[in-house]
Write a protein that binds this DNA or RNA. Structure first.
Length: 321
DNA sequence: AAGCACAGCAACCGCAGGATG
DNA sequence: CCATCCTGCGGTTGCTGTGCT
């Protein structure tokens, strides 16, 4: 394949340097995202065409959400679509604006590892062994929109989603934590039947939210932004500063507003576009104080210190063994 | 402070399918 | 029809940062 034509020419591998990125961006701006192998043929970069394309698609493309964790809604979409399409990451990624197939793949693989750890969690444990800590709230909180559906009898009397039983968070849309809090939150190896993975369309406990069709791909030449901007062209129909324009999932927009890159002036006024988290900006906007909004999505807690949930583990004393 | 383990991510590899000559 | 090239996809690997002991 590429290797034959590259004989004798030392091909660079490994991490990309800023200069290489710049060259690649310039090339794409001039010629569009195609003819990748001619980049090397023209002597612009000692990289294979594949490598150039990959770099562009995964890191340099203008509409990417780089350095932005998957939101709860994105997680839900990935889970739903993975159940529907299987490991068709590129296809799944078309439903997630700003995400690449590699992002989705990595997210899924990380999630699988985490689940595997959870499943292998030994029931008895020696006192000196540290229990696996649920590092993400979504490991033990089950949003009602999750495809992982409970049989009602699995929770205590089916009252788990009663808002009055939650911890002062009137509107948290999730199964009440204490119902799932145990060293074995999924009831694995107990008398309970295992959790069922139910396809979305057969899940009676799921509030159906039809998936939106994939977004149209950004076409070359990319639209240019007026200054000042982050240098990120907008999706068609988008407005400046809102990379999520065009992503029409109302739930997503309602919950998260938009995910931004580097903070801009407007970002400090978080409350309008990011209802899940309100920040009190002190003098000069330096001191930030987070206030939890009642409608906070569950993955919001991912950013909390894990020891916040230490009480969940309720470690038995060593005398119990 | 050093060593270790782990999670997350970037990048590579191999393969498949379409386009072209 | 065949060979070759290009592009795209999914799986895998290896590096890096971070937290824990």
């Amino acid at each position: 394949m590429d290797t034959r034509r590259e004989e004798g020419v030392p091909m660079r591998k490994g991490p990309w340097m800023a200069e290489e990125d710049e060259i690649l961006i310039n090339y794409v701006n001039k010629h569009g995202p195609r003819d990748w192998s001619s980049i090397r043929a023209k002597g612009l970069l000692p990289r294979t065409g594949k490598s150039c394309r990959l770099r562009w698609v995964n890191k340099l493309k203008p509409d990417l959400k780089t350095g932005c964790k998957f939101s709860a809604e994105e997680e839900r979409i990935v889970i739903d679509l993975q159940a529907q399409f299987g490991n068709k990451w590129a296809r799944i990624a078309t439903y997630l604006p700003g995400r690449t197939d590699n992002d989705v793949k990595n997210f899924w693989s990380t999630r699988q590892k985490r689940l595997a750890r959870t499943m292998q969690m030994p029931k008895p444990h020696k006192s000196h062994e540290k229990l696996p800590v649920f590092q993400e709230a979504s490991d033990f909180k089950v949003p009602r929109t999750s495809t992982m559906a409970f049989s009602p009898e699995l929770t205590t009397g089916g009252e788990s989603s009663n808002p009055s039983s939650t911890h002062n968070s009137e509107a948290m849309s999730m199964v009440d934590l204490p119902d799932l809090i145990s060293p074995n939150p999924l009831n694995i190896g107990t008398d309970h039947p295992p959790l069922e993975m139910i396809p979305m369309d057969q899940n009676p406990y799921l509030e159906q939210q039809p998936l939106q069709p994939p977004l149209p791909q950004l076409e070359f030449p990319f639209p240019q932004l007026p200054e000042p901007s982050l240098g990120i062209p907008l999706p068609p129909g988008g407005q400046e500063g809102d990379l999520c324009q065009g992503f029409v999932d109302p739930v997503f927009s309602d919950m998260f507003g938009c995910c931004h890159g580097p903070p801009s002036e407007n970002d400090l006024g978080f409350s309008s576009g990011f209802p899940a988290l309100e920040l009190d900006t002190g003098q000069n906007g330096v001191k930030l104080e987070a206030k939890i909004n009642p409608s906070t999505p569950e993955s919001f807690f991912d950013d909390f210190p894990t020891d916040m949930f230490d009480y969940l583990e309720s470690l038995p004393s060593s005398s119990d063994w």
